[in-house]
């Protein structure tokens, strides 16, 4: 019998004006799983993620993280990697690490400094002069050096080559806290299929699939095939 879920989403609805992007989604995620949040662009993935991490507050329904609605307490245990660069351009790896250490008690500063050294980041280089790859490495360090309960990673593999994707996945798998949950949004299913425990597919703002990857395999299928099946009529 599984314990209390880490993330509970009940009848989540979100509209932008008259356009409803999330149409009453309900699911929960237990502790210790790696969950793929899949769906084409515009299906409502980002709105859902933003609601979970506390960037969107005007939604209907209920979101609970460790039994608490998104707020100061939940933000202490949720590590979020947005799709875009969110650091000021004048920041350096050193100042960014200090910043995170100031605000998050569960941020492992020593580990972050070691990782920055391993990733060959110049600690005094300003973000605006860094390459996209270097910036992504820094973002990854800032998120994965937190001992979080829930890691929410929004398109961490987007816009990078296949070698970088492997590197990013390896970094995530090696560094996430024990018994933590990873919610990973992507459309690059092939690359992440091997690491997933569960997949959630969102189609047109509704929950299309919520199942264990093991069960998909038991039916002699793959996540990619299921994805094709579910979204075959989208294009």
């Amino acid at each position: 019998m599984a314990g209390k879920p880490l993330l509970e989403i009940k009848n989540l609805r979100k509209s932008y004006g008259s356009h409803e992007v999330l149409k009453g989604i309900t699911f929960d995620i237990p502790k210790g799983q790696i969950v793929g949040l899949l769906g084409p662009n515009g299906c409502g993935k980002s709105s859902m993620i933003k609601s979970i991490v506390g960037l969107i507050n005007d939604y209907e329904g209920e979101i609970l993280i460790n039994g608490q609605a998104p707020g100061v307490e939940s933000k202490k245990v949720v590590a979020y990697l947005p799709e875009k660069n969110y650091l000021p351009p004048w920041m350096t790896p050193k100042s960014a690490i200090n910043y995170m250490a100031d605000f998050y008690k569960n941020f492992d500063q020593e580990k972050a400094l070691n990782m920055a050294q391993t990733f060959e980041l110049n600690m005094k280089q300003k973000l605006k002069t860094m390459s996209k790859g270097q910036q992504e490495k820094l973002h990854l360090i800032l998120v994965m050096c937190r001992k979080a309960d829930l890691y929410v990673l929004d398109e961490p593999l987007g816009g990078v080559d296949v070698v970088a994707r492997d590197f990013i996945l390896e970094t995530i798998l090696k560094n996430h806290a024990e018994n933590s949950t990873i919610l990973l949004s992507t459309h690059l299913i092939y690359d992440i299929e091997r690491i997933l425990d569960r997949v959630i597919m969102i189609k047109g703002g509704t929950l299309a699939v919520n199942t264990q990857v093991e069960k998909i395999r038991e039916n002699n299928s793959t996540v990619e095939n299921l994805f094709r099946e579910v979204f075959s009529n989208v294009w």
Partner: peptide
Amino acid sequence: QKSVYGDQGYLTFTLPVK
């Protein structure tokens, strides 16, 4: 504008502060 409603808002609004 930048630190609250720009891209840096992703950082500001996910900090464990009110």
